[in-house]
């Protein structure tokens, strides 16, 4: 248990959460036909997840490449962008991610070990599960506060990272044959977006600071 790598644990939890969140956003915002989604249970709530192999593989590859950045605390934001037929962003779901500082990582690491060794790991995991569930529930109902998107939309996942971290992304490219490029300005910025704060969450081991939806 002392060998437990805190960064990896956080990255695992966040990537699993982002996977569920991306599937749910694509379902709720009707980017794909509802027929490819199946009801599953995650974080003890029903969610809709795609059962289309090609789409699932794409989402998995995206998260696989992102994981090393999250592990090293190099991913500042993960943004799910919904684009219209002309590839202009019409909606963005912004996940601002921050991990505790190195010092607090160490402290929390001890806490985690303490929880695992002396208490029940169930209480810690159930706390994180509760927080992530709240995010998922917010996404499930976000269409109530968002306008309908035009037909024929697509999506993209953007990662805001520090310049120096781009090298590790290049490393992953070689392994996964899933190259990443710098996003075009027009894919990133929206003119006068309407910002809708959906949820903020903090816990000792995972921090997803803010979930924002922005629409044109």
């Amino acid at each position: 248990r002392q060998d437990l790598n805190f960064g990896q644990v956080v990255a695992d939890i966040l990537c699993e959460f982002l996977e569920v969140a991306i599937h749910l956003i694509l379902y709720v915002r009707e980017v794909y036909p509802s027929g490819i989604f199946q009801k599953r249970k995650k974080y003890n709530v029903p969610v809709q997840m795609s059962c289309h192999p090609e789409l699932n593989q794409y989402i998995q590859d995206t998260l696989h490449c992102m994981k090393p950045l999250i592990e090293k605390n190099d991913a500042e934001k993960v943004v799910v962008v919904i684009m219209d037929k002309e590839h202009r962003p019409v909606e963005r779901f912004v996940f601002e991610i921050s991990q505790p500082t190195l010092l607090s990582i160490r402290c929390v690491h001890v806490d985690v070990c303490f929880c695992f060794c002396c208490c029940s790991s169930d209480s810690l995991l159930s706390h994180v599960e509760q927080l992530l569930r709240a995010f998922i529930l917010k996404i499930s109902v976000c269409d109530a506060v968002l306008n309908n998107n035009p037909p024929g939309c697509s999506f993209s996942v953007l990662v805001h990272t520090r310049e120096a971290a781009t090298r590790s992304m290049e490393k992953v490219q070689v392994i996964k044959d899933f190259p990443w490029i710098v996003a075009d300005e027009q894919e990133v910025h929206m003119k006068e977006p309407r910002l809708i704060p959906l949820k903020t969450m903090t816990s000792d081991i995972v921090k997803v600071r803010k979930l924002l939806a922005a629409e044109r």
Partner: peptide, 27 residues
């Protein structure tokens, strides 16, 4: 300095709605 923010995205695009509809029809 290495501190500037880069915004990265996968080079490949996800399958489009139409592509997915076609595969559903094939099935």
């Amino acid at each position: 300095t290495g501190s500037a923010t880069h915004i990265l995205k996968p080079l490949m695009s996800p399958p489009t709605r139409d592509e997915i509809l076609c595969t559903l029809l094939d099935l």
